[in-house]
């Protein structure tokens, strides 16, 4: 009623605060993120795991074209959730910044610095008139000075560092699962298991290998590696979350 009337006046312009100090467009952009499927990041002592639910809408769609996991640099991977087109813009930007850093300083960009450059970029779009915020949240993970780091960006341009997190749909449920089952001393395998089990939380019937994206950046090699469907299938079977054919489809 009255509250809504005020919202309508203030949610038109991105550059206007509401009387209670909120930016409604940014909050609505967060809603757009919820429409994307889940993406999960887990930091372990041995490296960072990025997993994504690549649910495709039709068997005719090529699963590889669903862009959830991206390589930003040799040592950095990014998982996205939300508006695909916005995500591509940000990934592009991150890739550019990573290369500029190499050219300028002759070294790989730090994960924290990269995240903050991306979030500063995102923030600009919440303060400039005529533009809209990005409707995407990113999980930036990689190795910095031999240490695994994991960060989150959201449409408001706020960076947070995490030990394990999820963005996109079912965020609350998956986060509860991660909070219950995360251990500090897990190894990379354990991290993969945790990520896949968390992803399975949201999917009652289990996960299909083609519908899951999995990437790791391990401390040893400091390289971003995407896992193939076969590898994923073996992981899924190992952690008992593989969807079986004889389960009822409905």
């Amino acid at each position: 009623m009255q509250g809504q009337a005020q919202q309508q006046a203030y949610d038109r312009g991105i550059t206007i605060f509401s009387p209670d100090g909120r930016l409604y467009q940014v909050e609505y952009a967060r809603e757009a993120v919820k429409r994307g499927t889940a993406s999960i990041g887990v930091r372990t002592a041995d490296g960072v795991v990025l997993a994504a639910d690549k649910r495709s809408r039709s068997p005719l769609m090529e699963p590889s074209s669903v862009e959830k996991l991206h390589k930003a640099d040799e040592h950095v991977g990014i998982a996205s959730a939300g508006h695909v087109a916005d995500a591509r813009q940000l990934i592009d930007f991150a890739r550019q910044r990573a290369q500029v850093n190499r050219l300028r300083y002759g070294e790989a960009i730090g994960i924290e610095s990269l995240t903050k450059e991306v979030t500063d970029h995102i923030q600009q779009y919440t303060q400039v008139g005529g533009a809209r915020p990005f409707g995407v949240a990113l999980i930036v993970g990689g190795i910095e000075n031999g240490e695994p780091r994991l960060f989150e960006t959201d449409p408001s341009g706020t960076p947070y560092e995490w030990k394990a997190l999820s963005v996109g749909a079912n965020r609350a449920d998956i986060r509860d699962y991660l909070e219950e089952n995360y251990t500090e001393d897990a190894d990379l395998e354990g991290g993969i298991g945790l990520a896949l089990s968390a992803l399975a939380e949201a999917n009652e019937e289990g996960l299909e290998p083609e519908g899951v994206g999995l990437a790791t950046i391990d401390v040893e090699s400091e390289r971003y590696t995407e896992h193939s469907a076969d590898e994923i299938e073996s992981y899924l079977t190992e952690h008992d979350v593989l969807a079986s054919d004889d389960e009822d489809a409905e």
């Binding site: 009623m1 009255q2 509250g3 009337a5 005020q6 009387p19």
Partner: peptide, 11 residues
């Protein structure tokens, strides 16, 4: 509904 600074006398 919640009481807020209303804009119109109808509210």
């Amino acid at each position: 509904s919640k009481r807020t600074d209303s804009k119109t006398s109808g509210d």
